[in-house]
Design a protein around this nucleic acid. Structure first.
Lengths: 367, 367
DNA sequence: ATGAAAGCGCTAACAC
DNA sequence: GTGTTAGCGCTTTCAT
């Protein structure tokens, strides 16, 4: 075994030299075989692969990264990994990244500047090839430091207009319009909206999309029916309690995300109001949990898979010099309504009186 | 700028040579200053740090790892990142690791051999310093390959008896005993158990702890009241539906994890049985969600923070030659009952008749 | 206390 | 087509 330098090298470790020696070739040939360079003699290649097998060789990623200048490491920055939406995103991102030969360095900011700072440093030091910032909000410092180093960067919704920056543009409008139209078609005229924290760009975008959809239909939203939440279940409970305390209750509530909607379900469970009989509830995100709450949640789907796939595609476009989409700057992410059981006719409408017959046809998901 | 080799070095990157040049010292001195070697002249050190500041130098982790033989990378292998327990664990693990100067390479096996295989390869190639296997089950191949390379390894519950392996020993018995005694004290005699998938060592341990606690109290469990679930909400729903179909319903149901218990809550919501009026439900894990379901879940807490802290401590004990606990092989993880609102007197018992008065005193959590 | 130089494992240019 | 070699950025001897 060749490795016996001054350092604490792991005893079991095997280097390219061990393979070369065993196969009776030079280390360059081993390297070429490993990297599938076509010009290597088939017979030699065979010997190399056999030697690799025999000694259990695995190329050292650090060394590769050092010499090639590419770490094959992708940074993924999310706000909080405890919010159920993010693990699903992380999972998809990781799966796709690994499938494409990349590793993922995850950091969650928790909206804390200190953590954000630390993540940036780590990402820089590990020399990641690119960073996807999926915080759904602007973190100014973060942008600054990263932009300055000319890292390929992907943002959601946001994005200073710089050459190294690509943007995933979520089409909030489409899904939310579908949802509002769905509720309006059922007969709802009085629809409240529980927003996310308005410092988040995406929360503002969702709220605005809702207001636009409403006014397009000639519907108005009294200011009391626009409540700011914080994208947590607790926030949803709090926001709904505010709504319930109002003299006039809306017949439907749309939420900026599913966790908020689930909070609404919980808050209403403590009141005599039934979902969807008295109040319809619509979420946003379509997290896994949404299908399993009671009643199953009607929600606007923003597919984690779409998001993750687009993020990686955009990142690679920035990383790999001759990627087909190297000059593309924007990736569109669609959204769409998924109708389940938390939305129905408002009580007292004619369709509601005919509920048994009509409900089957109009409010159908899987039946 | 020194860096202009043959490779695609990032334009903004700054190397140790740039700092040395700027400070008018050798790269060795820069290295020493950066690593706080005491023998470096204070004045020179000051100049070095100033230069570092000016050029925005960050040491390249790959190079450091290559020469030192230590990557300061910790592998964390979990079963499925979509199960809510794991993100919480990952979050804690990551926070603690970063605070202690380590990075985390996460992999989720999803119980798929192909993914497991890929994770091992990645972990080996990135030359992680140690791996925490928190899958709560044995994955034979995984153990084999990792053990063979003499990686410092941490397992939960399991663990072949090898020098490089440390074990986190979760004390399932204590928390589960507390839970069973809690239910028995309330008057329950007929307690069912919904286990996890029995191929998981930890699921078997939980079930056995339950059975032991029951027999210690002289209580028996008819075989129909022992149902195998799969640690998902869907599984909990399915298992509870089986139980409901039985001629004699238990008055309390203990579950192998919280997701199963939440499934039980959902299943019962579709029946006339009320929780906790008709049936008490107890979970295991104490995930974040447990406090927010309806009713808030009485559960056995296995603290993620404890688990993560112990895992990192154990890993470092194996990695760092003169760690105080270098020879310790086992870390104890306590569990404890957290009483919330999903457990109460069985209907028809005397205490239940006096519920209003007694419930306050005996079934208290935060009131 | 400081600098020169070797070398970690690998890739890529260059020579043959 | 293959081997030799320089060098990625850094730490760590070994001289001084």
């Amino acid at each position: 075994m060749s490795g016996s330098g001054h350092n604490g090298r792991r005893p079991g470790a095997v280097s390219i030299r061990d393979v070369a020696e065993r196969a009776g070739v030079s280390i360059a040939t081993v390297s070429r075989a490993v990297n599938s360079i076509p010009t290597v003699d088939p017979e030699l290649a065979r010997r190399v692969w056999q030697a690799i097998e025999e000694v259990g060789y695995l190329p050292n990623t650090q060394a590769r990264a050092l010499v090639s200048g590419r770490s094959r490491l992708l940074g993924l920055i999310v706000s909080e990994i405890t919010n159920p939406f993010f693990p699903e995103l992380v999972q998809e991102f990781e799966t796709l990244a690994v499938a494409q030969g990349y590793e993922v360095l995850i950091g969650s900011t928790n909206y804390e500047p200190a953590r954000t700072e630390s993540i940036i440093r780590r990402v820089l030091q590990r020399n990641v090839d690119g960073v996807a910032v999926m915080t759904f909000g602007i973190e100014e410092d973060l942008v600054q430091k990263l932009v300055q180093r000319e890292f390929p960067l992907v943002f959601v919704d946001a994005g200073p207009d710089m050459p190294s920056i690509r943007v995933l543009s979520v089409d909030y409008g489409e899904g939310i319009r579908q949802a509002v139209q769905h509720l309006a078609a059922l007969g709802h005229r009085n629809i409240a909206f529980l927003s996310g924290p308005l410092r988040l760009r995406s929360a503002v975008a969702r709220r605005d999309a809702f207001l636009r959809s409403m006014s397009d239909l000639g519907l108005t939203v009294p200011s009391g029916h626009l409540v700011e939440g914080d994208h947590t279940m607790e926030g949803g409970i709090g926001a709904m309690e505010k709504l319930v305390a109002l003299p006039e209750l809306p017949t439907a509530v749309m939420c900026s995300n599913d966790m908020t909607a689930i909070g609404v379900l919980h808050a209403l469970d403590k009141t005599p109001h039934k979902v969807p009989g008295d109040i319809s509830v619509v979420g946003f995100d379509d997290i896994h949990l949404a299908q399993f709450v009671l009643p199953p949640l009607t929600t606007v789907q923003m597919s984690c898979k779409d998001l993750a796939a687009a993020a990686i595609d955009a990142l690679r476009a920035g990383i790999e010099p001759d990627h087909p989409k190297a000059s593309q700057k924007e990736w569109q992410i669609p959204t769409r309504l998924v109708v389940r059981k938390s939305s129905a006719f408002p009580r007292g409408t004619l369709p509601a009186l005919m509920e048994h017959a009509a409900g089957r046809r109009l409010n159908s998901d899987q039946d």
